[in-house]
Every structure is written in C-alpha cells, then in structure tokens.
Design a protein around this nucleic acid. Structure first.
Lengths: 109, 109
DNA sequence: ACCACTACATAGTAAAACTAGGTAGCACTA
DNA sequence: TAGTGCTACCTAGTTTTACTATGTAGTGGT
C-alpha cells in the first residue's frame, strides 16, 4: 500500500470499521474481506484484528462468539451505545477536516 | 486537541502544509499561525517545525533564510517541483479516502 | 496424511504528532 | 540595565496506530 495511504488511515480506519458495523454486526475476517471489496485492497489482516481488540477494550462494541460452519468460532462484533457516540464524534472530526481540505483544494491557497 | 483529531492529522497535516505553500512561500512561525487561524487551533509549534524538517529532507521544498524585522532570521519554504508532485499524490489519496467515507456515511452501512 | 480455506492472534517495527521544554533576537519600559 | 513580551527556531523523548511476519486452529476434500 502507498505509504501516504498508510499514514492517512491512522485515525480513520477505526472510524471506517465502526461505520461498517452500524446496524450490521460482523466478525473480523468478514470485516477484512469487506474492506478489501470496498477498495482498501491491501489492508493487512493483522491490522484489523489489532483494531478490533482496541475497540473492544475501549468498550465500543459488544462481542459474541458463534460457531462457524467452516473454521474456528467467529467473534461477532456489534456496535453499542458508546460505539455509536464515538462514531458520531468521528464524523464530526472528519467533517471539520474534510471541509478545511476541500477549501484548501479550491483556493489553491 | 482531541485525540481523534491528533490521529486523523497523521498523514494529512503534511498535505495541508504543502497545500498552504502552493504559490505562497512561508516560514514556520507563519505557517503555525496560519493553521491556527484556519481552525486548527491547537497545533503545537514543535509539530510544525518537525514536519518542515521532514519535507525539507525529502526535498519537497526549497529553503531560503531571510532576516526578520523582529526576532531571529526566518526560514522561508517554497514548494518545488517534487513538492508539487507529492501534493498531487496527496490529493489523489485524499480523494479516494474521502469518497469511500462519504459513501459509508450515506449508506449508514 | 495432506492441502486449501476459513478464522483468530501476537511480537516487533516504523511513522507521525504530541508534550515539554530550550535558544535567540528585537523593542519597549520601569 | 534589568525585565517583560513577542517573534522565531529547534530538539529529546512519548504515544498511537498500521505495518510485517508469523503462528495457531477448525473443517472439508483428495
């Protein structure tokens, strides 16, 4: 992956995953696949699992273990109230940054 | 500054500074002030200077020392050809990320 | 038994913004 | 002339997060 993208994902990837989870519980492997399907082709599996551990420890998601038809049991993550609040703040931060940048791009400043 | 913003700035702050410099040479202190005026109220001075050292070492800017009316001499940074190329790539990366995120926000996915 | 695929997990590394200071030049004033 | 305030630059050490690289396990097919 481009180094630029790598750095830019810091701080946004967590939000992206939270957004993916809204109204749509999912497990790690599924999230990785989903991200890749959406164009983040080179996200490392390890990155996603580490992130999921983080948001679980922060208490943003509820976790449930479910047996899988194939392979080891899945850890299904569901966004909870705190996660929704965090996601909300993420969108606010994002909006601010996004507006600044669009302005800069327009002005050629 | 919010921790979220801190993390989100990683990978974008450099682009923001490059964008500020297009057609508008500036020195560190000026850039810091300018950033704050544009709403990035809590950007630390040290952060900007470290970033300027980085982009100078990468050869994205030309540097010229100019005496100041008040205080020590200023280091004026001018975006060069390599810097413009880098800025272009930055906008591409940003556009990609931005589009993904806007889509996610719309879909409520 | 072996392989392919699913699925989760972790140790160590790199990059970037932070905190928390420091140095230095100039102007004004008590 | 000592002190204060503003301008201006710089650095050492910390934290966070995504990365690489690897390991563990379960299931099904050959």
């Amino acid at each position: 992956m481009g180094k630029q993208m790598t750095e830019m994902l810091k701080g946004t990837l967590e939000g992206i995953v939270l957004a993916l989870l809204t109204g749509n519980p999912a497990y790690g492997y599924e999230i990785t696949t989903s991200l890749r399907a959406q164009g983040f082709t080179e996200i490392a599996e390890g990155t996603v699992y580490a992130l999921l551990v983080r948001i679980e420890q922060k208490g943003l998601v509820d976790v449930e273990k479910r047996p899988s038809e194939k392979g080891p049991p899945r850890k299904v993550y569901t966004l909870n109230a705190r996660g929704e609040k965090e996601l909300n703040e993420f969108w606010n931060t994002w909006s601010f940054l996004s507006e600044r940048l669009e302005q800069l791009r327009r002005e050629g400043n």
